[in-house]
């Protein structure tokens, strides 16, 4: 009798273990399903539109006139690239140097203050950044160079600030991951602290720095709400650092609210182009990352 009860209990326990195991497995597969759904829904809605408009007309068309059914997103692609490049020019040097400071030059007392500051910088919502850009950066540029102040320059400065935490965190982590023996070896050879850091540690962490930059590019190219407020948003090919610019992301947000028919589909196709950019960046990131793991 006891044996039977024990057997039954054991059996029930086994069932429970197995059921839960599959529930865990199922939960783990949710992210696969999510990515698959995102791909399917975006591509199924966007790709036919691209072919309806004509891939060349769509990607290389220089005019975006929804009212006359002309959908060329070349200005927006250029806009996204310009703004991202500008953000990189500002964000990479400051970010990487700050990371070096935090990893090797920062006294503990200051570190306790700088680290949360960078976390906070990462936590500020992009719409609040946009507000900051609008009330601070745009008027300054207006005063210095005239015009309405909105454009590539304002957008680049703002985005440069926004990608700092991404670049700093990844770079700092990769610097900290370099074996201490590298640094000690360099010191033993008579190099100063500064020379050891810059000529030994930084080169050793270069793939980490590279992945920081790639992640930064990904963040910059996908940023939307902050850009809308400072970029000016006219859908024309920008002709200078102060000219208004519209990015792929702002194109979607600005017009999706009232678009219908082919116009709406063209906006979804814009998101497809953006998504492909992001996938390319992800791919580059995983290549860099797999190289890093091989090296260690």
């Amino acid at each position: 009798m006891t044996a039977v009860t024990l057997g039954k209990g054991y059996f029930m326990k086994n069932v429970k273990e197995n059921v839960m195991k599959y529930i865990f497995l199922l939960a783990a597969c949710v992210s696969i399903v999510a990515v698959a759904l995102i791909c399917i829904f975006l591509f199924a809605n966007g790709v036919p539109t691209i072919f309806e408009i004509g891939p060349l007309n769509f990607l290389l068309g220089k005019e975006w006139r929804p009212l006359s059914n002309t959908f060329g997103i070349f200005p927006m692609i250029l806009g996204s690239i310009y703004v991202t490049a500008g953000a990189m020019i500002i964000g990479i040097p400051i970010g990487v140097l700050t990371a070096i400071f935090m990893s090797r030059f920062c006294p503990k007392k200051i570190y306790r203050f700088v680290k949360p500051a960078i976390e906070l910088l990462a936590g500020i919502p992009s719409i609040v950044y946009g507000f900051f850009g609008l009330v601070v950066i745009v008027p300054i540029i207006q005063d210095l160079y005239g015009g309405n102040g909105k454009g590539i320059l304002a957008a680049s400065i703002l985005l440069g600030i926004m990608i700092l935490p991404t670049i700093i965190n990844v770079t700092e982590a990769s610097l900290n991951a370099v074996p201490e023996s590298y640094y000690e070896g360099s010191l033993a050879l008579g190099a100063t602290h500064e020379r050891s850091v810059f000529c030994v540690l930084v080169p050793a962490a270069k793939s980490g720095v590279l992945s920081a930059i790639i992640l930064g590019v990904g963040r910059a190219i996908g940023e939307t709400m902050a850009l809308i407020m400072v970029a000016g948003n006219s859908p024309a090919i920008p002709d200078g650092i102060l000219s208004n610019v519209r990015t792929l992301t702002s194109n979607i947000v600005m017009e999706m609210g009232y678009a219908a028919g082919l116009h709406r589909d063209a906006l979804i196709a814009t998101a497809v182009v953006l998504f492909v950019f992001i996938l390319i960046i992800d791919f580059a990131f995983s290549i860099v990352k797999s190289k890093t793991t091989k090296n260690h």
Partner: peptide, 11 residues
């Protein structure tokens, strides 16, 4: 984690 929020929004 790399997908921009606007793409999530459209999806």
């Amino acid at each position: 984690s790399g997908i921009p929020s606007i793409v999530f929004g459209l999806f």
